[in-house]
């Protein structure tokens, strides 16, 4: 047992990678509850477009978040590859279940935190608060979003102009 621990230092992080448009994102496996084929979505009128729907996850009403808008990624039509990732994140110290839509789920992989880079100050339209860091991989730039910050901004600002 000790050997295994030594082989997997704390700097390694297991993530599931997903695709939104042409961008790869990493979701920490520790936050991931399950990956679902797309479920019927109920639109929430007047809600922010980043969290414009809810789904029924085995009897629980769970909001469906679109991370693409936070990162300026254009919308894509739903395909067979589309998935919903159910994650549990802390919001104001309380756990919350949110589903994230993905254009595709790619793989489960391990990332070395030591290779994580901060977002370059220029040349990116991504809000810094929404990004924990980026990884350079063979397949391209992998974005590790700061889910807590993204959801916190949604929770405080959701609701567009209601009538």
């Amino acid at each position: 047992m000790t050997n295994i621990v030594e082989l997997k230092p704390a700097a390694l992080m297991t993530v599931v990678t997903m695709r939104l448009g042409r961008q790869m994102l990493a979701i920490p496996a520790s936050a991931l509850r399950e990956i679902l084929d797309p479920l019927p979505v109920t639109r929430v009128p007047t809600a922010d477009r980043s969290v414009s729907g809810v789904i029924n996850v085995r009897g629980a009403v769970v909001p469906l978040a679109e991370l693409r808008f936070a990162f300026g990624i254009p919308e894509e039509p739903r395909t067979d590859a589309s998935k919903m990732l159910v994650v549990e994140v802390e919001l104001a110290d309380e756990p919350m279940i949110v589903a994230i839509s993905a254009d595709a789920v790619l793989e489960v992989t391990e990332l070395d935190r030591a290779t994580m880079e901060a977002l370059p100050p220029k040349g990116s339209s991504w809000p810094h608060a929404f990004v924990q860091g980026v990884f350079r991989t063979k397949k391209g730039l992998l974005l590790l979003p700061n889910l807590s910050n993204i959801f916190a901004s949604l929770a405080s600002a959701s609701g567009t102009a209601a009538a």
Binding site: V44, T46, A47, V51, V54, N56, A60, L154, A155, S158
Partner: peptide, 27 residues
């Protein structure tokens, strides 16, 4: 009645959600 998620706390038009017989959510 199911509570709306905190992500929808700014949405005033709905007091909650419920799950219909066909499994879809209605607000």
């Amino acid at each position: 009645i199911k509570q709306m998620s905190r992500l929808h706390s700014g949405v005033r038009a709905f007091s909650g959600a419920t799950i219909l017989g066909d499994g879809t959510v209605a607000l």
